[in-house]
Simulated assay, not measured.
Amino acid sequence: MTHGAASRVISLPMEDGAQVEAMFAADPKAHFDLHWHAEWSVGAILEGRCEFTCAGERQGAEAGDMVVMAPGMLHTAGVSAQGFRMVMLYVQQAWVAEQLGWPEARRGVLHRTVRRDEAAAHALAAAARAEDGAALGRLLARVLRAQTGNELVAVERQMSDARVEAVCRALATEDACHIDPGVLALRLGVSREHFHRLFRVAVGMTPAHYARLARIGRAKVLLREGQAAAEVAAQCGFTDQAHFSRWFRRCFGVTPGNYMAVRGRVENAA
C-alpha cells in the first residue's frame, strides 16, 4: 500500500501533441502492489534505493539509475530501509512505436530493466520538474532507443496456452469487468480447478487476482476518457467508490480523483 500523500501525477504535452504522464514519489513508506501499465514506464531514481519485482524477478535501483519497463510487465515497487525518491514517466506505445520506427503492435526487446545512467536520470528529473514536455519527449526517445534492440516482439503478452490467452483477452475487455473466472472455465470446457491450475502456471497468479488487475487497468483507461469515478467503479465491478479508490491508489500511487484532476488540467490548458 502507498502511505501518505507524497506521490503526485502531472500530465504534459510533448512537441507532437502526445501526452506524457509523470509521477513523482518520495514517500519513505511507499509500496505499490502488483500491477501493470498499458504504457511504457521510464523512471529515474533520484535518492535512496527502490527494491521491486518485475516479470517475477527481484530488482534494485539506486540514485542515478534508470528504470525501464515495457507495457504489460507485471511489477511491484517498494523501498529499502532508507527510502527513495523517484520520477516515473508513462508514455503510450503508439508514440514510442512512431518515434522508433516500429509497427504499433510490436516493440523492441528490452535489454535490461535497470541501467546506470546518471546524466539521463538528472536530465529527465529536471525536465519533469520544469514541466517541459518537449524535453521529456526527446529524452524518452533517446532512453528507449538505447534500452531496446532491433529484435521485435508482440506488445501483448503471449501465453503458451491458447485457452488462458483467450481468458486474459476477455478479462481485459470493457464488457468483461463483471465476469466470474469460474464462468470462463465452464465456457472453455474445463473444470474450475483445472482452469485455476492452468492459469496460475501460465500467468503466475490466480484468475481472481488477474481479473482485479485487469479491472484496475480498464478503470484507468475510463478515467482518462473522462468518465466519473463513481461510474468507473460500478462499471469495473468494485463494491463501492471507496473500495475502487483504495485499489487504484495501491497500484498507481494516487487516488482516482487526483488522477482525474490531472486529466482535467490538461484539457483546460489545451
Rank of each mutant, 00 (worst) to 15 (best):
C168N: 06
K220Q: 11
M159Y: 10
F199N: 00
V190N: 02
D180A: 12
L188Q: 14
M205R: 03
L223C: 05
Q241E: 15
S191L: 11
R200C: 09
F238G: 02
R200D: 04
V183K: 10
R212D: 00
L198Y: 00
Y210W: 15
D240F: 06
G226Q: 03
L222N: 02
Q227P: 10
Q227C: 08
F199R: 00
E165M: 03
F238C: 09
A162I: 08
P207V: 13
A234H: 10
L222D: 10
A202E: 06
Q241I: 13
G189R: 04
R224D: 14
E193D: 06
R187M: 07
G237Y: 01
D240E: 07
F195A: 01
M159G: 09
Q241M: 09
H196W: 15
F195C: 00
A234G: 04
I216D: 04
V221P: 03
V190A: 07
R218G: 11
R169F: 10
Q235H: 13
V190R: 05
H178L: 12
D180P: 01
A229Y: 00
V164F: 04
Q241R: 14
L171F: 03
H209R: 10
A208H: 13
A202Q: 11
E165W: 03
L188Y: 15
D240C: 04
H178V: 12
Y210I: 05
F199Q: 04
A211M: 03
S160N: 12
R218Y: 00
L186W: 14
F238Y: 00
I179G: 01
L188K: 09
G217D: 06
R197V: 08
D180Q: 08
Q235M: 13
R163S: 03
K220N: 04
R169Y: 10
A211E: 02
R212V: 11
D180K: 13
M159F: 15
D175A: 13
D240S: 05
I216T: 07
L222I: 10
H209L: 14
G182K: 01
H178M: 12
V232F: 00
Q227L: 15
L213W: 09
I216W: 01
R215C: 12
R224W: 13
S160Y: 14
A214N: 03
L184V: 01
